[in-house]
Design a binder for these strands. Structure first.
Length: 321
DNA sequence: AAGTCGTTCAACCGCTTTGTC
DNA sequence: AGACAAAGCGGTTGAACGACT
């Protein structure tokens, strides 16, 4: 009665695919279409299990897959979505057309994760490492699993005790990126700055997440999830029970994002300063499936995240030094 | 030149979810 | 409702490669 394992068979090949195998698979799928993976190996003359065929096709051979370097916008979308969704690679992949979840996952683990760590941020929570003295990883929702992978990863270790080496941020990455506003200042106020950054990221993640889920509702008549079209009047943002607690007139500004975020981050940062163990549960309002207005979301995510990481006017109080 | 080490990423593994009968 | 197959998903592995000694 036990279920038949799908990939157990004699003479089944493992490991890297040859071009010959690729050709066979492509040719078969072109002729017969996707699906019926269990039977494909036999019919296509491949000594592979069906699962392996499906993965090879989905992650590599499929014609509409975009490969190669990730753009800056893509990186920021990944960071933003990861802040709100955690390791939901397939969810993140849905917002990066032509990228596979596997590729995003790899890119996160090999690049973005390290970059966050270099910035003194916990890649799990997107909060400053400096402020998380105890491994107070929120044991709720999807972040649990990654905590294990954190401890096992030799690549993600350790920052010099509690100090955030912010001056290295822009140099740790060969690609010129506009992190200058973060890296050009003295490091004494690093913790405070990073707290703000992390708070922003987490809060932005909240907003994006809520926006995608349709739970971001202004107390006025704005209808979710569209952020850009609906914000025609002063909107008071609220997510379920979580009241962001601010009003903003999106029409009355030349720099919507900066002003909104300035006000928003001040609010959030104050709260974060006062509340140790910023309630991560607020970030974890994941839903099983997300219906997203792609047209509405993409420009917003990009511009919002651009603001988050790019804005050279990032408020920074040097008097604290 | 040879050995070591670190990084990357395709592929695998095992579990979960979804669909069908 | 339950059993089963197929597909989806996320964590992990290991081969390949480049940098360094």
């Amino acid at each position: 009665m036990s279920r038949k394992p799908c990939c157990v068979g004699e003479g089944l090949k493992k490991g890297a695919w040859t071009t010959e195998e690729d050709k066979k698979l492509i040719s078969y799928i072109h002729e017969h279409g996707e699906g019926g993976w269990r039977d494909i190996p036999q019919k296509a003359g491949l000594k592979r299990c069906g699962k392996s065929c499906r993965l090879r096709w989905a992650n590599y051979l499929k014609p509409d897959i975009k490969r190669g370097e990730f753009s800056y916008e893509e990186e920021q979308i990944i960071i933003m979505l990861h802040a709100s969704r955690g390791n939901k690679w397939s969810v993140i992949a849905r917002h990066l057309p032509k990228r596979t979840d596997n590729e995003i996952k790899n890119y996160w683990n090999t690049n973005l994760k390290k970059r966050l760590i270099d910035q003194g941020l916990d890649p799990l929570t997107h909060k400053p490492l400096a402020s998380t003295h105890e491994p107070a990883t929120p044991k709720t929702s999807e972040f649990q699993d990654d905590s294990n992978s954190e401890s096992m990863s030799p690549k993600s270790l350790p920052l010099s005790s509690g100090s955030c080496n912010i001056l290295e941020i822009s140099n740790s990455d060969e690609t010129p990126r506009n992190y200058g506003s973060l890296s050009s200042k003295e490091s004494n106020s690093t913790s405070e700055l990073l707290n703000k950054v992390a708070t922003r990221a987490a809060s932005m993640g909240n907003i994006i997440s809520a926006s995608m889920e349709g739970t971001l509702i202004p107390s006025t008549t704005l209808s979710p999830p569209c952020l850009n079209d609906g914000l025609s009047e002063t909107s008071h943002f609220q997510m379920d029970e979580f009241d962001i607690g601010m009003n903003f007139d999106f029409n009355n500004s030349e720099h919507d994002f900066s002003q909104f975020m300035e006000e928003f981050s001040n609010n959030a940062a104050e709260e974060a300063d006062n509340i140790i163990g910023y309630d991560q549960d607020l970030l974890l309002s994941d839903v099983s499936s997300t219906s997203v207005d792609e047209d509405g979301m993409m420009p917003n995510i990009i511009s919002w995240s651009n603001y988050l990481l790019d804005d050279s006017d990032f408020s920074y109080d040097t008097n604290q030094d």
